[in-house]
């Protein structure tokens, strides 16, 4: 593949990488399968696009997108914790509600073009960054900053409580943490990042589309899992970097299979299959090794430490 294709892979991997970090927060840290993501990604794109379309500052539009994502996450959290609606359903309800909201944000159009408009990318070229590196520069800055902030936050007193909420709710409640608050906070943070990513992507592809978030949760999961499998989860920092690399690898794989002739319309099927394969790999592995070492006990029980 040519250099420009690789550059494209890197660009996409970084911009969508911010979304993947958001999915990592809800899905892994909070252990909350949050389908809001499909809606909040588009929400971020729509808010930024409309804002820019109306002639306002693209940086402000991007920041506003993040704020809107945070609010969407708060609503999902409210549905789940205060109204006691199951996690999956809370997310689905928000996703559906956001579909209408996103259309409204885009002025009842299913697509909003930003062609020839000032975006954050054209803005940095004015600062002297060469035009073809503008996206990578900003994408890298966004990802590095996000990773750094998340890494720091997840080690604060509040951050530890957030992680423990996803790990063992009963335990952290008995240590005095209101787990409802933690969940709302985690969902707000995750969806804020997802919406930010949506805003970055909309400006990158010069349009926002009401359907651009469909299947985003699966793309996020695929990237998280690929990253974790390839680079491990030994430490928190390593995991954060791993999921971003997972995002880049995912884009590379997509570029590769499309080059090999996979039609664009089959991409979502391919991604779903990828996630199924990754998620079932422990079972497949288990079956495989059980056949290899018949009668031998698996390491599982030794690790769990249950007598």
């Amino acid at each position: 593949m040519s250099a420009s294709v690789w550059l494209g892979v890197l660009e996409q991997g970084l911009l969508w990488g911010v979304m993947v970090l958001g999915v990592y927060i809800t899905f892994r840290v909070l252990d909350f399968p949050d389908l809001t993501v499909d809606g909040s990604f588009t929400l971020g794109a729509a808010v930024a696009a409309r804002f820019i379309f109306e002639g306002y500052d693209p940086w402000l539009g991007t920041a506003l997108a993040l704020v809107c994502g945070v609010m969407a996450g708060c609503v999902t959290g409210f549905l789940n914790t205060k109204l006691r609606i199951a996690p999956l359903l809370s997310g689905i309800l928000m996703m559906i509600a956001l579909y209408s909201i996103n259309l409204r944000v885009m002025g009842s159009k299913s697509m909003l073009s930003l062609l020839r408009m000032d975006t954050i990318y054209t803005d940095v070229t004015h600062l002297g960054v060469s035009a073809n590196l503008a996206v990578v520069t900003l994408g890298l800055a966004a990802v590095v900053l996000t990773c750094y902030l998340l890494y720091t936050f997840l080690q604060t007193e509040i951050g530890l409580a957030l992680r423990a909420t996803g790990d063992n709710e009963q335990m952290i409640r008995s240590l005095g943490v209101n787990t409802n608050t933690s969940k709302i906070m985690g969902l707000a943070l995750g969806n804020g990042l997802v919406a930010l990513s949506g805003a970055l992507v909309a400006q990158y592809q010069s349009f926002s589309d009401v359907g651009m978030g469909i299947g985003m949760i699966v793309v996020g999961l695929a990237s998280v899992i690929v990253g974790e499998v390839l680079f491990g989860t030994k430490t928190l920092l390593r995991t954060l970097i791993a999921v971003v690399i997972g995002s880049i690898v995912y884009r590379a794989v997509i570029a590769l299979v499309m080059r090999m002739g996979l039609p664009t319309t089959d991409l979502k099927l391919f991604t779903a299959a990828l996630v199924i394969l990754a998620m079932s790999s422990p079972i497949i592995k288990e079956k495989f090794s059980a056949r290899q070492a018949r009668g031998k006990e698996s390491g599982e029980s030794a690790i769990s430490g249950r007598p």
Binding site: T156, E157, I158, A161, I172, G176
Partner: peptide
């Protein structure tokens, strides 16, 4: 990290370094 969370039982959790 587990002990740090236990040390905060009954206290207010802030955006300070956990350990």
């Amino acid at each position: 990290e587990n002990l740090a969370m236990a040390l905060k039982r009954g206290g207010k959790r802030k955006l300070l370094r956990g350990i």
